[in-house]
Nucleic acid binder design. Structure first.
Length: 598
RNA sequence: GGGGGCGUGGCGCAAUUGGUUAGCGCAUCAGAUUGUCGAUCUGAGGGUUGCGGGUUCGAGCCCCGUCGCUCCCGCCA
């Protein structure tokens, strides 16, 4: 017999009864009855109950066995009597009656408690410091396994579509635009630095120039930017994709088939939107949902009612409209009977996210009530009801501000209503594409800048850049969104140098500045680049959605904390004087950061 | 860089809002217990309330500073 297990802790069933087996695993739980003891033995695959009878010489020793110790038990698989079957356990029909028991490794008391409720976890820094223990929890085992399966499925789906998986460099050069780079000093070239790629963007475009036609990679990306609950600091993985000779619709169709198929595969009973996913132009999304990553599970659509207030007696809104602002209406069905406190709370919420106020009207018993009702004529109310498609029992909330602010606030109120009224179906994955992002926008000082990706192809090409108002030009740029989570951004790339120069000129860059900054790209584009485009869905976020987690660290085996520290490995850390000398690096830290102990 | 929240035995929490010796559950240790399944019962040990200062007769609680964690804004082409 093998020294360790012959079976896993999750596989024995009634049909295995009276077979001699050997199981290895961790002491998960222990129930000591003095002259009879039960040990729940756990491994990656499950839990099996081990019975220790009083006549065994290792009985006393088992009483001293600590949780999370590793043991190997040999014995006969035994059917449990009808009244002792555990229906909650896949192996609950049987138990292993121990004949031999070897303690492979006794564990000390663990700093985090694993035998309790799986949702009752300790503080996150402690979990991260002892991640190897935290990962033993069944939920984490499931999440990390799910991640493995998702990556494997994505890889298969991409290969089936004829994409080539190609590795691109990890040590590359610093890129002038975008996020902060992580720099790596070069020993052979003192004073020079590599940078870790923020994304393989340039390489994948160069692969298209190289004629590789369809590329993908499960690509690590490195950005020295601050974290969020759904954004891991430092590093993350994306399904990096680029395709040649495509129009926008070709990319959308390919990617939605991969994502749609993937989500169906791992949906576990949840519904997934059918293909094709809804396409929503950016401007429409900002109006209807107040966001470029709308959660379409919330059945509320914002509408514009600025014109109806332009003539009204409600000065607060009318004056905003006269100054060029807007009024947005947020209609919600069948909540007229909510108590006053509900409406007060919504007003308070709107103010907390920066609104001056939140108006509302309640259609009830043939009347229209609410704080702003008295300012509106019979005709105003009739038109509002028609525009918002509301009737008796319904409520409409109003936000008024300059367009961008009003959109944002209305969007936040929409989401808050969805949450508080429990309108979000947790058992559905609702996708959409946001398309037609604006190419340019104005910054705070009024200058025209790129609003998203400077390397996207402007819709209308050179003609649009030369003749249109820059702010009206759209880009072939798209995001895919699921349940309010932005999974990915992509674009048809600008592969024509002359259009690049022109686009950068509009954003305030001289020709020489563009040449200096993007020489490598312009150089490659001199030699016949194919038209191409791509996208890069975030793997961590996909797994997060499928695992029904709201924190991205729950689907990463060894994540860093919000301050980009690895609490377990203690990274980043000081390095030795010798290492620095070899690299010709001298530290010059500000006083408050200058700790001794290199 | 800015804002909010949190910090009390190994872990999770409490302390009637400034008042006796800082409690409870889990874990740990000892004892009891032959069908449990997050076993149960009895008992014991374990605390500089993150750190420093201040106010007060008296501070876990109030004030100032500082450190740590977390969420958000900025940032993430």
């Amino acid at each position: 017999m093998h020294k360790y297990r012959t079976h896993t802790c999750g596989e024995l069933r009634g049909k295995d009864a009276s077979v001699e087996v050997r199981l290895s695993g961790w002491v998960f739980r222990k129930r000591d009855h003095g002259s009879l003891m039960f040990i729940d033995l756990r491994d990656h695959y499950g839990v099996t109950q081990v019975v220790i009878k009083p006549d065994r010489e290792f009985f006393d020793m088992c009483q001293r066995l600590r949780f999370e110790s590793v043991i190997t038990v040999t014995g006969i698989v035994t059917l449990r009597s009808e009244d002792t079957i555990n229906r909650d356990l896949p192996t609950g029909e049987i138990e292993l009656v121990a004949d031999q028991l070897v303690v492979d490794c006794m564990a000390e008391q663990t700093p985090i408690y694993l035998a309790g409720d799986q949702d009752d976890v300790g503080p996150e820094d402690l979990r991260l410091r002892y991640r190897f223990l935290d990962l033993r929890r069944s939920k984490m085992q499931a999440n990390i396994s799910l991640r493995s399966s998702v990556i494997s499925s994505l890889r298969k789906r991409m290969l089936d579509l004829g994409f080539n998986e190609i590795q691109t460099p990890i040590l590359t050069c610093s890129s002038p635009e975008g996020a902060r780079d992580y720099l790596v000093p070069s020993r052979l070239h003192p004073g020079k630095f590599y940078a870790l790629p923020q994304a393989p963007q340039l390489f994948k475009q160069l692969l298209m120039v190289a004629g590789m036609d369809r590329y993908f990679q499960i690509a690590p990306c490195f950005r020295d930017e601050d974290a969020r609950a759904d954004r891991s600091p430092g590093e993350f993985y994306q399904l990096d994709i680029e395709m040649s000779f495509v129009e926008q619709e070709d990319v959308l169709t390919s990617v939605e088939s991969v994502l749609g198929g993937l989500f169906c595969e791992f949906a576990k009973g949840r519904k997934v939107d059918e293909l094709p996913f809804k396409r929503i132009p950016y401007r429409e999304a900002m109006l209807k949902y107040g966001s470029d990553k709308p959660d379409l599970r919330i059945p509320i659509e914002i509408c514009d009612v600025s014109d109806l207030f332009k003539e009204s007696k409600f000065n607060a809104f009318r004056s905003v409209v006269e100054k060029g602002g807007v009024v947005r209406a947020i209609p919600v069905g069948k909540i007229a009977e909510k108590p006053r406190s509900f409406f007060d709370k919504m007003v308070e919420f709107a103010q907390s996210v920066g609104s001056k106020g939140l108006g509302y009207l309640i259609w009830e018993d043939g009347q229209v009530k609410g704080p702003i009702a008295k300012f509106l004529s019979e005709n105003d109310l009739k038109q509002l009801a028609q525009r918002c498609n509301v009737g008796s029992g319904d409520v409409v909330f109003f936000v008024s501000d300059m367009a961008n602010e009003a959109n944002r606030i209305a969007g936040e109120v929409r989401v808050k209503l969805g949450q508080d009224l429990d309108l979000i179906d947790k058992n559905v994955f609702r996708f959409c594409w946001i398309t037609d992002f604006p190419m340019f926008e104005k910054d705070d000082t009024g200058s025209v800048i790129f609003s998203h990706n400077p390397f996207s192809m402007p819709q209308g090409g050179m003609d649009a850049l030369e003749k249109q108002d820059p702010l009206s030009i759209l880009a072939y740029q798209y995001d895919v969104v699921c349940n309010g989570v932005e999974l990915s951004s992509g674009a048809i790339r600008n592969h024509k140098p002359e259009i690049m120069y022109k686009a950068f000129e509009i954003a305030g860059y001289s020709k020489s500045a563009v040449e200096e900054k993007f020489a490598f790209m312009l150089n490659a584009f001199k030699f016949g680049p194919p038209p191409h485009g791509g996208i890069a869905p975030g793997i961590d976020r996909i797994v997060m959605l499928l695992a029904n987690e709201t924190n991205i660290r729950e689907v990463i085996a060894f994540p860093m904390n919000q301050k980009a520290q690895d609490l377990m490995m203690n990274a980043p850390s000081n390095v030795s004087e010798k290492q620095l000398r070899e690299l010709h690096i001298k530290l010059d830290l500000p006083k408050d950061k200058a700790e001794a102990g290199i």
